[in-house]
Amino acid sequence: MSEFPVSFTLEYPYTRTPGPVIGPFLTGLRDGRILGIRCGSRVLCPPMEFDPDTGETLSPDFVEVGPSGRVENWTWIAEPTRKHPLQEPFAFALVKLDGADTAITHAVKAAGPEAMSTGMRVTAQFREERVGAVSDVYFVPEGDAREQAIEPGEGEVEITTHLISLTYEGKLHPHNARYAQGLLDGKFIGQRSPVSGKVGIPSRGYDPIARVVLTPADDVEISPTGTVVSYTVITPIQYRGQTETEPYISATIFLDGSDQALPQQDIRDIPLDEFRVGMRVRAIFRPPAERNVDAVDNDWMYPTVGDVVERWAPTGEPDVPMDQIPETM
């Protein structure tokens, strides 16, 4: 049995509205200034919308702090992750900026851990390209700081964007691998529960009702012919990663000999006015070389037959009458 590696990247550029306190703070960073907020007799940096002790909403009384300050605590990051603001070894530090009473956690670029110590002075360095995000700045030992002439940007920062991109890797669970191999071979492989006798496709590797784990001995080949039990017409909504553009029929098909419908089967070549519940259809597989199961993964919520079915063709048999369509799907 071949292994099927699965890998996907969950990626989205989140657009955050930072509000009346973090907004000006980020505007400040873009413009080369670090702002704290007055909270009673203290100055908080990073600023907060409220007094952390009482919950009282603070009025937007900002104070410029820094650009230098004292390292209160630090750790040397020998192997930065892809998400860290500096891609060479660096320190995360708590920095209490001059004029502030609380410390901000941020990155310090230094020659090495020997160059770091609690109590040392550091200075803000602003990046050449600033976008109104907390990563517009980092810190360096005070002596390493360069003079910077910063041109303020235009307007207030109303949105701060955070591209979150996470990659997940693994391989298909054994029953999914056999299902995927079946699709490549032009077959629908499901599993029959030895307890209930019910056939599920794609199987989840267990009988969810009897709570028993199924084995390869429970695998069964299911007929490629079935009945349309319901459908809808999808007008694709555009979002990041969506490649569908034109409306299409999405049908729920009950394969003969199975007890669980295949949802969301794309129908691209049967005219809508000919398509109907009760219609008998048969999966026409693509030629073997064109079959692709990259979309099959371990995520049962979106069961897929991958890209192996060229089309669902009407068999020409009489429709299954409405009263024989299973009440349940």
Partner: peptide, 18 residues
């Protein structure tokens, strides 16, 4: 508005039907 429901519901995959 920070993100996108259709994207999240599809697990970031194409073909999400919402």
């Amino acid at each position: 508005s920070d993100g996108n429901f259709m994207w999240a519901l599809s697990g970031g995959r194409s073909g999400g039907q919402g």
